[in-house]
Amino acid sequence: MTTSPTRRLRALAGVAVLALGLSACGGGNLGSDDSGENFPDGAINLTVGQDPGGSTDLIARALANPVSDDLGVEVPVLNRPGANGALAAKELASKSANGQELMVMNLSLVAITSLTVPEDDAINLEDYTVITGISEDDYVLVSNADSGLNTIDDLKGAGALNYATTGTGTGSQLSSALLFQLAEIDGTAVPFDGGSPALTAVLGNQVDVASIQLGEAMPQIEAGTITPIVTFAADRNEFLDDVPTAVEEGYDVEVAQARAIVGPKDMSQDVVDQLREAFTKAFETDAYTSFNEQNLLRPQELDGDELTEVWNQSVETYRQLTEEYGIDLGSTE
């Protein structure tokens, strides 16, 4: 079988054109008008900087449906995983601020990951428009139920311990590192790749304790396979009201994961208001409130200014604490 060279060229050209078309689609739309009159103009992309299936992804999907119903346009959730979400955030910053491009931003990306990466890669909240806060997710320190480690005093008396974290630059790492430092417990961090492997390591007695998000730990706590020692929240969690906070135990460690909806910088106030209203309605739906209860998420449905203030406070606190106690989140020690 032989084909003429021109046909071969044509076929190649076809592929090239299609490839170009694809890359153009990924580039985002620039140059649309910024006033709120024509908003929304087609689908609103809700980007998630993590893989499908994680807490952030599930939250985005729980919100996308009711928001889509309210605004009458599609709200597809796009996963753009990479660098704890920094990849998605960097791309969002360069997109048009017309309200069609949004993202679920994690507090840990702004406040903790930024402490571990070069300054150029750090994500600052001031480079974005905050639409609304979403919810807070507590961290809890757990041990294997058979280990006999039930309180911080048990940990102190146990000698050298290994603790699993859900990764470098996460709230899990920060919370346990701070607690171990303040309580003068001899501990070594073992970073795992997410909450589920860290939990597995505790269940399999590979490590002694781990700080993981409450929603992920709850099924095992209910089954009695792991013991919650302390939470790192400001107040006791209503679903776990017999478990003290680290602060109550005398160690000033308050670390939580929080999430917010953000868009590119300088969005028009009108568009922000329309979006905030749509999300507020979504927060009030029965499906969403029961989703929060099911996942033990505490609503933090603040407006842009309030949220920015709260988050900036966390950024400052985390920075001070890590400096004060010489905690290097970039290394395993």
């Binding site: 660098a83 470098t168 970073p191 970039g330």
Partner: peptide, 8 residues
């Protein structure tokens, strides 16, 4: 990025 030390 090194998942243990954070270095590139």
């Amino acid at each position: 990025r090194d998942g243990f030390t954070g270095s590139e």
